[in-house]
């Protein structure tokens, strides 16, 4: 079966530094894959290249077999990829539901429309998405005053607006309380199970990673040093080397940031 996402020999330099160095991997439909590694390992760079925010120095990104290298972010989104950001990005001047409606408007290609009032469009669709992420009760609130965890969930609702086949989540639970983290990841796992969406996410919280990921890739210094099931990764000596200089990967707090 064609992988949803495939990276082939992705490389990215920043000056003399190779932030990402010849990285290849593939992601199957419906798979929940975690990308972990210490700070500066190249996770976000990888992410941004996959999502079109950053052009790779060399290598290719394939989406369902199609070469999407160098595509702008909006085109990749249209091709069926949703994403959330490490630092949440939502529309602060709008209500919660309007944020999601905006994503729906974009999906239905209505952004240049001048005739109807936007707040009446796709309300049900947006509401359903908000219900999915458990934000239904806050639909009419002003996005600028939401708690951080709620913003993360709002972002997720926006990312799901066009029923993506692939979801990229950059540290989805950063800044959330432990209880919220588990809830969010269960939500994501549910979406994977229900819709068959593939998810690639980076994360620092090892509880989240080992509790929810089906597969884990470990990056260090721009390269993938391990790739396997949580059990396999837990036992990998090189991974232990990277994390805490050989100590066991303990649940709980990883390096944050």
């Amino acid at each position: 079966m064609t992988p949803v996402l495939e990276a082939r020999h992705l490389t990215r330099h920043f000056g003399a530094i190779r932030a990402v160095d010849d990285v290849s991997f593939a992601l199957a439909p419906g798979e929940l894959l975690a990308l972990i590694g210490p700070n500066g390992a190249g996770k976000s760079t990888c992410f941004n290249m996959a999502m079109g925010q950053l052009a790779p120095s060399s290598g290719q990104v394939l989406l369902e077999g199609r070469d999407i290298t160098g595509w702008p972010a909006r085109r990749i989104w249209r091709a069926g990829v949703g994403r959330t950001f490490q630092i949440t990005a939502t529309y602060a001047s709008m209500r919660v539901i309007e944020n999601v409606q905006m994503a729906c408007l974009s999906h239905h290609r209505r952004t240049f429309s001048l005739i109807p009032r936007a707040h009446r469009l796709y309300r049900d669709e947006a509401m359903a998405l908000l219900e999915t992420v458990g934000m239904g009760a806050q639909a009419e609130r002003h996005a600028a005053i939401l708690a951080y965890g709620d913003l993360k969930r709002l972002e997720l609702a926006m990312a799901l607006a066009h029923a993506p086949r692939l979801l990229l989540m950059d540290e989805p639970t950063a800044g959330m309380a432990p209880g919220e983290r588990a809830a969010l990841m269960e939500l994501v796992a549910g979406i994977v199970a229900e819709r068959g969406t593939a998810v690639l996410f980076t994360e620092h919280d090892m509880d989240v990673v080992f509790g929810h990921a089906q597969r884990i890739m470990v990056m260090n210094r721009g390269q993938i040093i391990a790739d396997g099931t949580p059990q396999a990764i837990r036992g990998d000596a090189r991974v232990r080397e990277v994390y805490l200089g050989g100590g066991a990967i303990t649940a709980g707090r990883g390096a944050d940031g």
């Binding site: 999502m51 925010q53 702008p72 972010a73 909006r74 989104w77 249209r78 949703g82 994403r83 950001f85 990005a89 939502t90 529309y91 602060a92 001047s93 709008m94 905006m102 994503a103 974009s106 999906h107 952004t111 972002e155 926006m158 990312a159 607006a161 066009h162």
Partner: peptide, 13 residues
């Protein structure tokens, strides 16, 4: 204006 990255990542030009 509010979040250009988000806008681009949800298909807005």
């Amino acid at each position: 204006r509010d979040a250009p990255l988000r806008a681009e990542a949800t298909g807005l030009d």
